[in-house]
Design a protein around this nucleic acid. Structure first.
Lengths: 210, 210
DNA sequence: GTCTATAATCCGATAGAC
DNA sequence: GTCTATCGGATTATAGAC
């Protein structure tokens, strides 16, 4: 069946990318891994760029699965915090998959992203928007404009750490990074809302403190 | 002279990268631009990877020059805000130079960065640390732990915008982005310190509000 | 010492036979 | 769907001319 082969190719492609990185990834090596010759791949994927886009889609899918675990938590605040920590977990445990999510268009070819992949990217953004909206409704966050702020802070911290740009400050291990990240997030959250400042959690909706 | 040729090669390499991006960059095209044959380049640079590292160094140098303009401002707070806005200006006006600063190691080859380039990266971080420390001394910011927080927020916002990850929220023009970024930064700063919350600016040290 | 010329090796992608 | 054969182009090393 066609989609079966496609799937096997994508699995091998993902593993190959995870093992050898971006510049070790070639259609010929992929063909060797799959056990066919290179031209056969073009029956399933239009181009190398196309395969890379699908790897990106796969990465989004895995990230989404990780994020959805947060929905098991009981309160909006817990769901939000677990979504953020799940996001960081994913990035630290799968740095290459995380990197491919934000690769500059310059490096993946000039072509547009397939709609399906773009939709998966939007879904991740939407997930955070929903978590934030929940928190706003519960009085934990001040307003729903903070979603980009919080996402940017999280992505920025992870991104700078993964590129070793924090080693100069002694932040050179995952453990140390988590400490710094938690502290930074708490700092940002305290300012961004919660009963401490703007919103009175008079209803006493349980999960107030960071 | 040797270093003269090296410099000319680097200039051409930077222009070529700016024009054609990462995957349009090749040693052959570079040689054509310079006016020599490809193998001649290897007398001056050990590899393509080496040239890319030097482009990264050049990008850091230009960013530093932009940042240093902030030192012309009179107060710590003004210097800090202008450093941040200069940082954003640089990123929006030179998106490809900004991208090369944070390119994943996976995509530039496995080799380590030259020490000189790494030092230039540290210098940028140090510059922000200094601006923050100044602000702490002036009572504008609460403590100097916020430097990574602010840098991460700034880099995260810029990075997500440049990758089109904010278009889904209608943030698809530089003007709109600047609005959102300013609002987000102000939000973060209000929480992170200043007379409004933690620190009383009783001395009334002039530059208090964002 | 600096550059050129040649060549080995790999890559992406296509055409056409089975 | 897969193969063989092949094209055009890229990186990189080596050998030799100025």
């Amino acid at each position: 069946m066609s989609s079966e082969t496609r799937e096997r190719i994508l699995n091998e492609a993902t593993e190959l990318y995870l093992r050898d990185g971006f510049d070790g990834f070639s259609m010929r090596a992929l063909a060797r891994s799959v056990g066919v010759t290179a031209p056969a791949l073009y029956r399933h994927y239009a181009s190398k760029e196309n395969v890379l886009h699908e790897i990106m889609g796969e990465a989004f899918r895995r990230l989404s699965n990780k994020l959805y675990e947060a929905l098991a938590e009981p309160t909006p605040h817990d769901r939000f915090r677990r979504a953020v920590s799940g996001y960081v977990d994913f990035a630290l445990e799968n740095p290459r998959l995380y990197e491919v999510l934000f690769v500059p268009p310059t490096m993946m070819g000039e072509g547009e992203l397939p709609e399906s992949v773009q939709a998966q990217g939007c879904a991740v953004g939407q997930f955070f928007d929903d978590r934030v909206r929940e928190c706003v409704a519960a009085g934990v966050l001040r307003d729903d404009q903070v979603a980009p702020t919080l996402w940017a802070h999280t992505h920025g911290m992870v991104s700078l750490y993964l590129r070793g740009r924090m080693a100069q400050r002694g932040i050179d291990s995952p453990e140390r990074f988590r400490e710094v990240f938690e502290a930074s997030t708490t700092r940002v959250l305290e300012g961004l809302g919660g009963p401490a400042h703007g919103v009175e959690g008079d209803g006493g909706d349980s999960d107030a403190a960071a």
